[in-house]
Design a protein around this nucleic acid. Structure first.
Lengths: 258, 258
DNA sequence: CACCATCGTTGCTTTATACGCAACAACAAT
DNA sequence: ATTGTTGTTGCGTATAAAGCAACGATGGTG
């Protein structure tokens, strides 16, 4: 049945290659053929040949000395196409710059993809950089301010249930793990027009996010400011929220929202 | 012969998939199965099945209404791994921010990849954004300031010859197309410690770049400031160059260069 | 330093996959 | 209303890809 993309209907050697690409992580940006063979359950000659093919097209790079592979710059080239061809990306850059200036903290723009938040755009503040997030990084929906905003305004009611179904895993002592509490908080976020996360995803890190609308009135992205709790204490959340909401509405206006 | 990656030794269905991915451009971010079939010389059922496989892993996304495909967010995720795991990327962010503040113009960091410049990092200035470059974009080596810096300091003497061999195509009336003039200019750049491009790649756009060294004294990246010629006239080049050189040396120091 | 283990590559064989054809439904164009 | 185009899918076949074994290179160990 064509409508359902069953595994049996896919090209297995292409899937192998894509699984290899997806196995690279920030924590493990270098991989050996033998390690991939074990972790993916593929024969080492299969991995070796697949890697050679990926390398020939610049999707991976083989260090001639260590024989380890890294992701290649063809990926960076393609990613430039992914985000710069998105209207919301282009329309948000100046506003993110201004928001970082007025709040003094890092700002980013994110959307939902595959039951997660993914960061499209990030502007760093002038404080020492700690790399809490990066463009392309995925984070959970239920315990990040951006994620909660996107959940709160999502028109697909099924999405929240799927996220809950997947499990609300605890990251810090502040993580919301009770589905009912999450539902209540999402209603509150709809009322307030913004969300915040107080150390819900990462110890010591707070963030505040507001929805970005498109011309049809659909929420298509979340704009957020993120920083250490010392610089974003509870008392400042309301003030920062006003700035984030204003900036988000600026982007929304550029997207044709009225 | 294993050392030479001959086409006949690669997995053809994987190559098909990678060729499909690479066919997307900023100018054509959406593709139809039938158009790809024609442009890549593949049967439409081959394209259709390959696309379905790429979509199942998030490498492309199919618009359910138009049936056109776009690149997917798995690519953005992987690109985040590509650049944030590079030392020079992490060590340069704050310096780029400062450089944009002191010069008032857009700055970016780039490296060489496959006989081209590729942009790893970009910080926009506060002027209206024109998207002359983006992270992941590739540009020629011989007529961009970053490219000329990387060529001037490249230890692989073959590289310049390969670039010349490929042809010095004219982009503007200022593009250097004479190999001998290019060689002379590269020597000059080594002397000056910076390069500039005066409308050599794009009409009305000037840029100034300086080399970034690693701990071994090898030039691994170029730091550049770019802007319209009205804001970066010839008279200001020397002054801006000083700032770029200083910023590049800051990054070099962080990379362990002394 | 010799020996053993591991890794990555490659020749080869076998089998299962991927390719292309044809047919079809849906939609667009005339 | 008719024709053309597109994308999907069943099917058959040829070939590509997977895995095995062997090998050379390199690393680890006693």
């Amino acid at each position: 049945m064509g409508a359902e993309n069953q595994d049996t209907n896919h090209l297995s050697s292409v899937k192998n290659a894509l699984r290899i690409l997806r196995s690279f992580t920030v924590d493990e940006p270098e991989k050996k053929v033998s390690d991939l063979s074990v972790s993916l359950g593929l024969n080492k000659s299969t991995v070796s040949r697949t890697m050679a093919t990926l390398a020939s097209e610049g999707f991976v790079y083989k260090d001639p000395e260590t024989k380890k592979y890294r992701l290649g710059f063809s990926i960076l080239s393609l990613s430039g196409i992914v985000n710069t061809t998105m209207d919301v990306y282009r329309e948000s850059i100046q506003t993110l710059n201004k928001l970082v200036e007025t709040t003094g903290e890092t700002a980013h723009l994110s959307i939902i993809d595959q039951l997660e938040v993914i960061y499209l755009q990030k502007v760093e503040c002038n404080h020492p950089v700690r790399f809490l997030t990066h463009v392309g990084r995925r984070n959970p929906l239920y315990c990040t301010s951006s994620g909660k905003v996107l959940l709160a305004y999502c028109q697909d009611e099924d999405l929240l249930e799927q996220v809950i179904q997947q499990g609300l895993n605890r990251f810090t002592k502040n993580t919301i793990t009770d589905p009912q509490k999450l539902r209540e908080q999402l209603k509150e976020i709809q009322k307030n027009g913004y969300a915040y996360s107080s150390e819900e995803y990462r110890e010591g890190v707070n963030s505040i996010a507001a929805p970005v609308y498109d011309y049809r009135g659909k929420v298509i992205a979340a704009l957020a400011v993120v920083g250490p709790k010392q610089r974003i204490p509870s008392q400042k959340i309301n003030n920062i929220a006003k700035k984030v909401i204003y900036a988000a509405s600026e982007i929304s206006a550029k997207m044709g929202y009225r």
